[in-house]
Simulated assay, not measured.
Amino acid sequence: MPDRNSLTWSYSLPAALLLMAPFDILASLAMDIYLPVVPDMPAILGTSPAVVQLTLSLYMLLLGLGQLLFGPLSDRVGRRPVLLGGATLFALASLGLAATTSAPVFVALRLVQAAGASAALVATFATVRDVYGARPEGVTIYGLFSAMLSFVPALGPIAGALISGAFGWRAIFLTLAMLGLAALGQALPRWSETRPDAAAPMRPRFRPMLASGAFWTYTLGFSTAMGAFFVFFSTAPRLLIDRAGYSQLGFSLAFATAAVVMIIATRFARGFVTRYGTSGCLARGMALIILGGLLLGAGEASAVPSFQSFVLPMWVIAFGIVMSASVTANGALKAFDAIAGTAVALYFSIQSLIVSLIGTGAVLLLGGDTAWPLVGYCLGMATITLLALAFLNRSENR
């Protein structure tokens, strides 16, 4: 890591987290705060549930694929301009979403919103790699980011239900716009440039990552973990509100319990890494996701949708998500600090591509108002990841 990063980024760890975390949180909040009104959006926009599903799936897809542009761009022009531009785009798109009831315009603005979130997200994580990649604080900051992100799915749907209930669905997007502008206002005077001088390739250099078995294995693990949660929140509103008869607030509270489990699990993540190592944590995380998937399948086959048959098995999956996600970034990216922006971009874009295509495919093909999409995704992706990990470990031990 260049010495100048220690000079230009001299914030204490709490101050750095307060500066960086809002951009990471907003990218997720734009998904979760919207969930309670998803069943109402087809009537509001005059369209079908499949189109409304696109507002979730395309957001996830572009959130990742946009980083193929913004990651290398941040390596070339710097983290700061990419972050500030992305935050501005996010806030403006959120304002536009609050002002329209046209389905095509709504979908288009969700894509713009995702592009802004994508730019801010990749610049944030590239800054973390620049400043903390070789420091002990690196493990801490990833763990704290995971803990903060656990609060988003816990509180986001509840906040969305309360905001929409009191002020209407448009207020959800106005809230996102105001939060984006607040984060931007904080970053403008304080976010200093951290890009290493050597990290300015004329062309994106994806080949080193694509040729790395560790990069692929841990990116698959990250995709499995994030995809499990994506399929959960894609199916949960229809299953719990439409089939189980939950109110918006009741759904949000039930949904939040899975996130609370993630928050609790995050408190133990550092200990798990110390005890089991990177590979051991990923293997145990995948095993828990498979176990949760089996429990979900048994619940769907033998019971009507309920908290016990759908949400409780998700607690097991949530614990596996945290165990996996606590190690996947370092496992995938540790060899690529010199091109951190590009490496982070490819890591997130592959994850988003897998999640959006395979996750959405599972929802559309296996029944979006049942647990089967989540069962299929968890069992299939976790098994593939465990096979890749076994092959990687065998290769490294030769």
Rank of each mutant, 00 (worst) to 15 (best):
D3Q: 05
R4W: 05
Y11A: 03
L13S: 08
A16P: 12
A21V: 11
L26V: 13
S28I: 15
M31W: 00
D32P: 01
P39M: 08
M41R: 05
P42T: 04
G46F: 09
A50M: 11
A50R: 12
T55A: 10
L61K: 01
Q67M: 11
L68N: 06
F70A: 00
F70S: 03
F70C: 04
F70W: 10
L73P: 08
R76T: 07
G78E: 03
V82I: 02
L84V: 08
G86C: 07
S94A: 13
G96K: 07
L97H: 11
A99H: 14
S102G: 14
A103H: 00
A103T: 00
A119F: 01
A126M: 08
V128M: 08
R129C: 12
G133N: 06
R135F: 05
P136I: 01
G138Q: 08
I141M: 14
Y142I: 10
A147I: 15
A147P: 13
L155W: 03
I158Q: 07
A161M: 03
L162A: 12
I163P: 10
R170G: 09
T175V: 13
S192Y: 04
D197K: 14
A200H: 11
A200W: 03
R203K: 15
R203G: 04
F206Q: 02
R207T: 12
M209L: 14
L210W: 10
S212M: 10
A214Q: 04
L220H: 07
F222A: 07
A225M: 11
V231K: 05
V231C: 07
F232L: 11
A236E: 02
L240P: 14
L240T: 13
D242F: 01
R243Q: 15
A244K: 05
S247L: 13
G250E: 05
S252L: 08
S252V: 05
A258Y: 00
A259R: 02
I263S: 03
I263A: 08
T266L: 03
R267L: 15
R267S: 14
G271R: 06
Y276C: 14
S279W: 01
G280A: 04
G285I: 00
G299A: 04
E300S: 12
A301F: 11
S302R: 14
F310Y: 10
F310Q: 08
W315M: 10
F319C: 15
M323T: 04
A329V: 10
A332H: 02
L333C: 02
K334S: 15
K334P: 01
A338S: 13
I339K: 02
A340G: 09
V344D: 00
L346G: 04
S356M: 07
L357Y: 03
T360M: 04
G361A: 06
V363M: 12
L364Q: 14
L364I: 13
G368A: 11
T370Y: 07
A371Y: 03
M381N: 03
M381T: 08
M381C: 14
I384F: 11
I384M: 14
A388G: 14
L392Q: 05
L392K: 01
N393F: 04
